[in-house]
Design a protein around this nucleic acid. Structure first.
Lengths: 206, 206, 206, 206
DNA sequence: GATGAATGAGCATTCATTCAT
DNA sequence: AATGAATGAATGCTCATTCAT
């Protein structure tokens, strides 16, 4: 029975993998459920056994991705003790993950927005969640005196927006340079935006 | 003859207005050409007389919007003499325009991304163009000594990204506060990110 | 313009004719919209230009048929002066119409019932309408003293039910005899059920 | 072994009960085999162990119902000695059974017709069988001199048709009155249609 | 015997685009 | 210039049926 459960989860995951690939390649609307089936080496009916409809596939994908991303970010944050280092770690982790999974980045930042009204609510929550995570670290840093008091909420939004834009541009480009190459310059800008002390700007970037 | 020309342009504009309304309401893919025709009080055939296909309508809309936006931004920049004030003016102008034309903002920032691969190239150019405009002002400010030397290209991207995120979130919200209310906090953050002197942060925000 | 209107109506009628043929042959559920298009020598899209959905085609067909049937019945009733003769005329007209249009009969009596819940309300109204027409004549006859006082409502239902059953059986049979052949026997039975005087039973049937 | 047999029959009956409920609620075509499985608390595979296909379930249901109905009717007939009383008993039994089992009535009179060509033959046989049973009693009554000589075959059809219509209407109505309430009026009409003596019309209706 | 995952053909409906009028 | 009827390819989704476990 446990074996069957595992098989079921495997199949589901295989479909999600295929969906990621197809959605990233064609976009949500252009992608046909048949395409996903083809890529997952399943039949259309097979997909509809595991997901009630196309939308649900996309949402599951969004969930899986955001969970993964948040876990990594949180782990990265936990691995650092200095408040400013924590924010840097979060930044770097996102750049790293998306940098090595362009399809994921495209899905998350490009396709999700245009997939339709149905996803906006969920998407808004995700954006808020990411910006909120950054905000928390910044507040911690403010409390600890590492940075001067600033509007941490707006700062979180700015950080997320900057990151977003850098990655989105990288996604839209035809033959982009490695995403991580942009980290140092971005880091300096963002640290300065929150009034981080100059010496923290000198530190090795990981 | 000139009269006929004018009539034609009028008709075209009426269609574009309708398209903006429909695309913003339904999204590019969900919007049917019939919907645009209905809103423009024309027939489907009428639309196809003025535009070769659906995509062309969207592109024309994008053109019209970006031209308008850039013009306004450039005018705002020209109206200020101080380099830092120029960047602030650019920032404020965008917030102002989108703030009073939510449909435009949605079209530009949300729908355009998901409208399909065909638009990505054009969209990437637009994003680069906006970020570039900011970058130019920042370089001017650096040359003039108003701000310390920084990577103006990345800074342009960061500024645009931050602006983008703020507006996108505002677009995705159900009942958002006035967009311009966010200006002061955003302004402080961004000015600080480029190392603008503290006294410039104090100035009246317009 | 009038010409175009006529063309449109013609097309619509052609589709309805095709639909009648297809629905009678395959049944509502089994019939594909494509089948109707094929029979009407139109494309599927063409059908959907004239009707919003499959159901609407069926309902339009039901309307057209019932209108035709009721008109004929009313004309037949009007052509007779004697109350009992009126009821006989109604009976005979239905038998005649369905007898020469088996597809119509099948659609009306067999397919309509099984076409789904959506049609039940409409169908119940039709049944009531037919039974009601008979009832009215019977009441007239009672008032005129041609037949004894009876429950005309139930009698209308009985008449309609008997007619229904005779026709339905004829529809379900593989190689039925002419429907009109059943008229004399049916006539005697039904006239007797309402207590019509014996001499009216002798009259030439027509 | 006999125990296993019993279990098997039980399972089969449980499926048939579920099918009756589902078919009556949704109609044959709209009902999914999964629905039946859900209602029967079995799996789809379980159903296909007991029945070769969906059609077979419906036919088995038809068989079970018609057998039950005929048995009851025959018992009712046997319980009376007077020929006319026999026909009355038959009539009343049907009204009674369907009156207390609306789903059965719907299945039998409404869904069966529209379920598709495959069932028509079987259905025609059933109708003939019921009408035939009535016909037999009427012939008996004619032979015994209780009623004048009439075309008993057509009379059987008329009786069945009248009954059919009354029940069908009752099935199609949203909130119908008790079916048995219609018995007295129907009884009078039908008895008169066969020329039954007036004094038989006066008898207590059971 | 039973389960439920998988299949795949079938179908209603949509919609960009064309074109005769 | 404009209309709107017509086309036909595309697509999400359903569901009877099969079969490995």
């Amino acid at each position: 029975m446990a074996v069957e459960q595992a098989r079921k989860v495997q199949r589901r995951d295989r479909i999600l993998d295929a969906a990621l690939s197809v959605f990233a390649r064609k976009g949500y609307r252009e992608a046909a459920v048949d395409d996903v089936g083809l890529e997952a080496e399943t039949s259309k009916g097979g997909i509809y056994f595991h997901f009630p409809n196309k939308q649900a596939i996309f949402l599951a994908l969004l969930d899986r991705t955001s969970t993964l991303l948040l876990q990594r970010v949180e782990a990265a944050i936990a691995s650092q003790s200095d408040p400013i280092a924590k924010t840097e770690a979060a930044l770097h982790t996102v750049l790293q993950l998306f940098g090595s999974h362009r399809a994921l980045a495209r899905l998350f930042l490009v396709e999700a927005l245009g997939a339709g009204r149905e996803f906006h609510e969920r998407l808004a929550a995700l954006r808020a969640s990411f910006a909120g995570t950054i905000q928390q670290q910044l507040e911690e840093a403010i409390r600890g005196g590492s940075i001067p008091p600033i509007d941490a909420a707006v700062a979180g939004t700015v950080w997320f927006g900057a990151l977003n834009e850098v990655v989105t541009r990288w996604v839209l480009e035809d033959a982009p340079c490695p995403l991580e190459d942009l980290y140092p310059a971005l880091r300096v800008l963002l640290l300065r935006s929150i009034g981080a002390p100059d010496d923290s700007l000198l530190g090795t970037q990981r």
